[in-house]
């Protein structure tokens, strides 16, 4: 195993607390009620939201709230080795944790008897694809006009060469010692996703969460900008002037 950090610089040239280059875009699909696209490092993920809409099959509808359904899926060409198109156990688990990361932000009681479908397609995968997918999905939900308490933003941290680092790349994820994805509603300070793979001391665990939250705050600013870009093209001030 080669050394992944040299003099505080990682294999891709980043510092330990630096995110990969990212790009967020809102409203990328015509048919969807809401959609968003994210690039984070080599990750390219497109997310569509359909709903709130009538629930099919009907017996699954809930009388007092909507049902959230999530499908995280990797395209067969998204990985180094072709991934067969059928959903794997990994994708089923990730679909579940993503749904549970987004649901705390949604005012589900506002949409009784309906379903909200979220489709997350990984067109190209890199480390931290579930986190990037969550960040894009909450933008797509906002784009669909669904009432939310806050945006959800996610970012992974990990331990590489004994050091806690932000936003693991593919190689750091595979060869590093630990990987911990975290999602948060930044204005409410509520953590909605936490997973851990690998050994961390309690000190590293705390340090990792702090680091992840700092990364999430940066991405949150990017989320806001992406929404502004679509809905307030000329900037907030101009809109105020118009009023």
């Amino acid at each position: 195993m080669g050394k992944l950090i040299n003099d505080g610089i990682r294999v891709d040239g980043r510092r330990v607390d630096e995110l990969r280059p990212y790009r967020l875009e809102v409203g990328v699909l015509k048919n969807a009620d809401g959609s968003a696209y994210i690039e984070l490092g080599k990750n390219k993920i497109i997310v569509a939201v359909y709903g709130p809409k009538e629930m099919h099959p009907k017996h699954l509808a809930l009388p007092d709230r909507c049902v959230l359904r999530c499908r995280y899926h990797m395209s067969p060409f998204s990985t180094d080795v072709r991934k067969p198109p059928a959903p794997t156990r990994r994708e089923i688990e990730i679909s579940k944790v993503i749904r549970e990361a987004l649901e705390p932000a949604i005012l589900v009681e506002e949409y009784p008897r309906t379903a909200i479908d979220i489709f997350l397609e990984v067109l190209q995968s890199d480390g931290g694809s579930r986190c990037a997918a969550i960040t894009a999905a909450s933008l797509a939900l906002a784009d669909a006009g669904i009432s939310m308490y806050d945006l959800v933003v996610a970012c992974a941290v990990g331990k590489v060469d004994g050091v806690m680092v932000l936003d693991l790349s593919d190689i750091e994820d595979k060869e590093g010692e630990a990987d911990m994805p975290v999602a948060v509603m930044p204005n409410l300070n509520i953590i909605t996703l936490l997973q851990l793979d690998g050994i961390l001391t309690h000190e590293e665990f705390k340090q990792g969460i702090d680091l992840a939250l700092s990364g999430c705050r940066k991405l949150y600013e990017a989320q806001r900008k992406a929404l502004m870009e679509k809905y307030f093209k000329g900037g907030l001030n101009q809109q105020e002037e118009a009023e």
């Binding site: 959230l68 944790v97 749904r99 549970e100 649901e103 705390p104 911990m180 509603m185 409410l188 300070n189 509520i190 953590i191 909605t192 996703l193 936490l194 997973q195 851990l196 793979d197 690998g198 050994i199 961390l200 001391t201 309690h202 665990f205 969460i209 939250l213």
Partner: peptide, 17 residues
């Protein structure tokens, strides 16, 4: 040794720091 080695948050609610 007391170190953490795995974790998973579940369900549609959040947790504070």
């Amino acid at each position: 040794e007391g170190h953490l080695c795995a974790g998973q948050k579940g369900l549609a609610g959040g947790l504070t720091y």
